[in-house]
Design a protein around this nucleic acid. Structure first.
Lengths: 231, 231
DNA sequence: CGTAACATTGATTTCTGTCAATCCGAGTGG
DNA sequence: CCACTCGGATTGACAGAAATCAATGTTACG
């Protein structure tokens, strides 16, 4: 979400970054229920938020791309309802809650801007709920790929036709609420339909219009800063 | 969420309520994309938020109970990504965004308390995503009923064994991402299993422990004010 | 070379959606 | 009071989607 907050707020945030560090791939940063006292901005790499119930069922409920605040939503509540982990090696910037609160104290407009970031996150959650509840496997995967296409473009990780997505098919299953085997078949279907490919952690978009249609994707929920020129 | 904000904040909010009104049953309050300049607190009745895509697929992504802020999340963004409608006749209180912003200007602690309300909402969204993505029909319905049981109790609409839920089976289908026919079968299964019944818009909880288990329900994500005494 | 993780495929089972018919209760008009 | 209608609720039969099970292939890597 770099570039999505105003210049002055961005400057204020930078000033209170307490640390920049690197997390190894496939490591757990925070577990559900833990107290959280710093917020994390993802600078590079991918991170995931996931829910695991007592029966061991697991769903990844969010995928964070560079520029996202990963757990800003923990600031008002103090703890998280889910786990946060890295996908690949991740570079992150830490912001102590106390310092962010000081920014909020300073200017309520800043407070609302930070709040807004978490509200876009919530809007994405709603879309994910819709995706899992009402889209068939192939449509869900297409929809997911469309979202990633847009978001990776937004953060400058796409060249317009392809972007890195260093996940396994099993990960994709956890994102789309499918079994790994079925993900494999769905990916083949998308490839056979000439819409997109997923190989070695890279997504190639072959037919963006077709992919958008297959996933009945509408990016409004992302609240992108620019107004799409499309009518 | 009445009673979930501090006494002084509640007083401040009451002071800036601009209007209390009643909406008819099954009416649309706000459509996706519309500008929103007031926030709504639900006083009585139920309201729903739903997403409809271009293909006409529909999913209800939230069910609001009395005491919930229905669209506080629109304050930072100014518009909504989904529709908001009533289920039955609903009594609501209106709070102009300008006045709420004035409260935020006053005290950043208030700002964070309001923010926190929307973060609980987001946490519920995540649980709904999990429910639709990883729970089978019967487990999903059980999980949904558990959540409603807790939330209706929280707002004083349950007598401990039963609570009103004036929905059709078709509504339940839109909540759980199922077909109406399958909802009917799942409800029969829940009844036959002696877990709960749903008839004439009333849910009777027959075996709460069993229902919790069937839905692998864990209320942590609701961030309830009281700490459950259970170990 | 062997191993491990991931990807792929086929066979089968289970779950869920769809279609169609029937039922039921509340309201309505004759 | 009764036939009628209408919106749900219910049920059965069937089709289609996705999970599961099991085996095989592929690749990277120590």
């Amino acid at each position: 979400m770099i570039g999505k907050v105003s210049e002055p707020l961005w400057a204020r945030l930078c000033a209170c970054c307490s640390e920049i560090m690197t997390l190894p791939a496939r490591s757990t940063m925070t577990r559900a229920g833990e107290k959280v006292t710093t917020s994390v901005l993802l600078l590079d790499g991918l991170m995931v938020r996931q829910i695991v119930d007592r029966a061991g069922d697991l769903l990844k409920v969010s995928l964070q791309v560079p520029g996202d605040f990963v757990d800003l939503h923990a600031l008002p509540l103090g703890r998280l309802d889910h786990d946060v982990l890295t996908v690949n090696e991740a570079r992150i910037a830490l912001f102590p809650h106390e310092d962010i609160k000081a920014i909020m104290d300073d200017d309520a407009e800043y407070a609302r801007a930070l709040w807004a970031q978490t509200m876009i996150d919530a809007s994405i959650h709603r879309q994910w709920t819709f995706r899992l509840g009402r889209l068939r496997a192939m449509a869900a995967m297409a929809n997911f790929m469309c979202e990633m296409d847009v978001r990776m473009s937004q953060c400058g990780r796409s060249d317009g036709t392809a972007f890195p997505l260093p996940l396994t098919q099993s990960d994709l299953a956890d994102f789309c609420g499918l079994s790994p085997v079925h993900v494999n078949r769905v990916l083949r279907d998308l490839r056979d339909a000439g819409l997109c490919t997923f190989r070695n952690g890279v997504v190639k978009v072959l037919d963006r219009a077709g992919l958008v249609k297959a996933g009945s994707f509408n990016p409004d929920y992302l609240f992108l800063p620019w107004t799409p020129a499309s009518p």
